[in-house]
C-alpha cells in the first residue's frame, strides 16, 4: 500500500523517464541518415509520448488529456504502413 504522495512521486518519475527517452529518440531522429531508421524512431517517439500523455493526465488529474493517446498510437501504425509501401517502390493506391 502506497500513500498518495508516493504514488505521485512514482508517476512523476515515470513521466521524467519518458521525457528523457523521448529526448534521446528525438536526438537520434535529428542525426539519423537512413529512412527506415527514421521511421522506427518516429514510431518509438510516438508510442513513448502516448504513454507520457496518459501518465501526465493522471498526474495533473485531468482525465480529458488522456484522449490523445489513442490517435498517437494508431496513427504511428498508419505512418508505418505508408512508409513501408513507399519503400517497396509501389504507388500507395496499388
Amino acid at each position: 500500500m502506497l500513500s498518495l504522495e508516493t504514488q505521485m512521486y512514482i508517476l512523476a518519475g515515470a513521466v521524467g523517464l519518458y521525457i528523457l527517452s523521448s529526448l534521446i529518440y528525438a536526438y537520434k531522429l535529428a542525426t539519423e541518415k537512413s529512412v527506415p531508421d527514421m521511421v522506427i524512431l518516429v514510431d518509438s517517439l510516438t508510442y513513448d509520448l502516448a504513454v507520457f500523455i496518459v501518465a501526465l493526465s493522471i498526474l495533473t488529474q485531468n482525465a480529458y488529456l488522456a484522449v490523445g493517446a489513442l490517435p498517437l498510437a494508431i496513427w504511428a501504425y498508419v505512418f508505418d504502413i505508408y512508409m513501408s509501401k513507399y519503400l517497396e517502390g509501389r504507388e500507395l493506391g496499388d
Binding site: Y64, V67, V78, I81, K85, G93, D94
Partner: peptide, 26 residues
C-alpha cells in the same frame, strides 16, 4: 460531453479509407 466533435471524428475516420487503400489496394 468530452473532448471531440464532428471535425475530430471526421478527421479520425478519414484515416480509415487511406489505411484500406494502402494496405489492400484501391
Amino acid at each position: 460531453l468530452t473532448p471531440g466533435g464532428g471535425f475530430q471524428g471526421g478527421a479520425a475516420f478519414g484515416v480509415a479509407p487511406l489505411l484500406l487503400i494502402t494496405a489492400f489496394s484501391l
